[in-house]
Design a protein around this nucleic acid. Structure first.
Lengths: 365, 365
DNA sequence: CTGTTAGCGCTTTCAT
DNA sequence: ATGAAAGCGCTAACAG
């Protein structure tokens, strides 16, 4: 009575397959996973049959241990439910998938969890670590993060940031300033003169560059942005909303609110957000204050996340190649990890001239 | 001249730490990773110091191989950039993070890639596999998928579906029908009589149940849904858009288009989408046909994805606890995997009475 | 409490 | 072309 129990709770191993096929475990390994198959056709077939019959699946971890390297890359984002990250992630996953490497997505909203996440990630010795943050976080953890990643690199890993060039690692970048100039020009040309600015942390490159580009154009047009109309916040819907609520509460937005209004009591005529989700949050807040965005006040974003076309009113913004940015990051990681020595410079530019997307939130006035 | 080269390209191993600390590798393992620390305080300190100095990070894969189990769960979604999945994913990542298990997100838009993804996933022997699909896919791969997952379960794994109870695996579920009834009632009570329905595949439970719930209410209200006003599509923005375009092209939507119009030439007075992204796509398509959603025609969705509040007009829909659904899936996976034998029934209900969210897309008429 | 010693499943020389 | 054997880094009995 052979105990050939069918519901054996453990998966077939390479050895099982080898036995079943009547070959050595080494041979089995060669046909199932190895590279150059120097295996006689006969045994090749036997092994394949055995594998199919036993439903063999290589243990990815064991392979990783034996090979000393893992077939995955990890992607760290601040928030998956933010459409910006979703779009970037999509590019990462797509590109990685095409190369047969899987991606582990980690979510780290703040510096502390980010450091933890990186530590966990390095413990898995992935081919690469891609970090896409919503802002530059100046925290004590920052130095540790850098050290950790440096060690990871020294150990043969590859770290790439997306839109953050503050740390000494390769970074995917876009022509933020060019895009900013373009939309600022549109704002001016459309007849707006008193912009409120919703920006991110000054240390976050993207925010800084976008701001610089816009300011240059405003200056040239003779517009001096009133500091009373500038608000800070993280690049999130919530903070875009909060920023406007705050401005409204202080009476800065409209002339009606009296002397506190920005621009010498005239109030602002448009809200310029340095990122789409902030713009979307801002529109909601404007409405909460009885101001109809796209009508009583112009609004612009930056990024062109997929849903910016669906919001109310649809958002006039700067198109950024979000998906491509994710892909570029993967390419860089994989190229470096394929021994491509120093695969290019530290900055990886994607698309040189961001297009501006004209929609309804910034009507000519 | 000690060759104590600092830029050694390979990370410290447990052995390095043990040597450095002057203890056995077993002891080092105990203090660094093991559970019950039965280690003398003195050696504990020495090991910790050595570990810090050498910057030791356990090799997650080696641990997994040695332990025979991995500290992660994999989440398979059809599309990360879909806000529905983003919200669910967020719940999954959050819940998993709290338990110290990391999540690997895979993207599999169709049956074929899904099967592949599951195969890759099982090769990594994760604690669990959570599958969140946008529809039921009837394809030959389906049987293989089931077989694969069954094998995975037999090997001690745990598979959980989110909103798909067609396969014999645990599934997170919500009261679709109740929600559907509620919104149908709202539609009727708001004065609408000639709904167009945008549904998903009939084999996809969520779509089917929502449809059934609505139909029951419409029937009772004496409304017979005109088959000419019913369109199929996947649960995506694109297909919601396409469905409406198609209906418009056939002249079904408005009385103006003549005899082809649904409801005996009267045309429809509202579009009822069985999911939010379809509704959003539909609104865009309506506009493309000169019909202003929320004004000329009512629109409803189902799901209450975060951005449904921001679209134009904001969407009246049925709230689904998206994040909680993700969390519930994780809890089930972890509970089962913690030996909680048969942790509950096959269906995991989240929230029994879906609320309906009143916004602007369905004004009283 | 701590060290020894087997493995975990797989890859990879190194012989044959 | 194929097998034997030595690891990969870590865990887990099993003695002390």
């Amino acid at each position: 009575m052979a105990e050939q129990n069918d519901k054996n709770p453990s998966p077939a191993t390479l050895m099982d397959v080898a036995n079943q096929a009547g070959v050595s475990i080494a041979t089995a390994s060669r046909v199932l996973n190895g590279s150059a198959r120097k295996v006689r056709n006969e045994s090749y077939v036997k092994v394949m049959e055995a594998a199919t019959k036993l439903n063999y699946r290589p243990n990815a971890y064991a392979q990783a241990v034996a090979k000393g390297t893992a077939p995955n890359i990890v992607l760290l984002v601040s928030d998956i439910s933010d459409p910006y990250f979703a779009a970037v992630s999509q590019g990462v996953v797509k590109a990685a998938g095409e190369q047969g490497v899987s991606v582990t997505i980690g979510v780290a909203p703040d510096a502390k969890s980010e450091l933890e996440a990186v530590r966990k990630a390095t413990a898995t010795r992935p081919r690469g670590i891609i970090i896409s943050e919503s802002e530059r976080i100046d925290a004590p953890e920052r130095a540790q993060l850098e050290a950790e990643l440096k060690r990871y690199e020294a150990a043969g890993g590859h770290a790439v940031f997306i839109l953050n060039r503050n740390l000494p690692f390769p970074a995917v970048d876009v022509a933020n300033e060019v895009g900013a100039r373009a939309i600022a020009k549109l704002i001016v040309d459309s007849g707006y003169r008193r912009p409120a600015i919703l920006k991110g942390d000054d240390n976050y490159r993207s925010s800084k560059e976008r701001l610089a580009g816009m300011m240059a154009v405003f200056d040239k047009a003779g517009i001096t942005v009133d500091p009373k109309a500038v608000a800070n916040g993280r690049f999130s819907r919530t903070e875009g909303y909060a920023a406007i609520m705050q401005l409204a509460r202080l009476g800065r937005l409209t002339a009606a609110s009296g002397a506190d209004a920005a621009y010498d009591g005239q109030g602002v005529d448009c809200v310029v957000a340095l990122n789409d989700v902030m713009a979307i949050g801002a529109m909601s807040a404007l409405r909460a204050n009885g101001i109809e965005p796209g009508k009583d006040m112009g609004v612009t974003g930056f990024g062109d996340i997929p849903y910016s076309a669906d919001v109310h009113p649809s958002l006039t913004t700067v198109h950024l190649p979000l998906t491509e940015m994710g892909q570029a990051a993967v390419e860089r990681v994989l190229a470096s990890s394929d021994g491509d020595a120093d695969a290019g410079s530290r900055l990886i530019f994607v698309q040189s001239a961001p297009d501006i997307v004209l929609r309804e939130s910034l009507p000519r006035r």
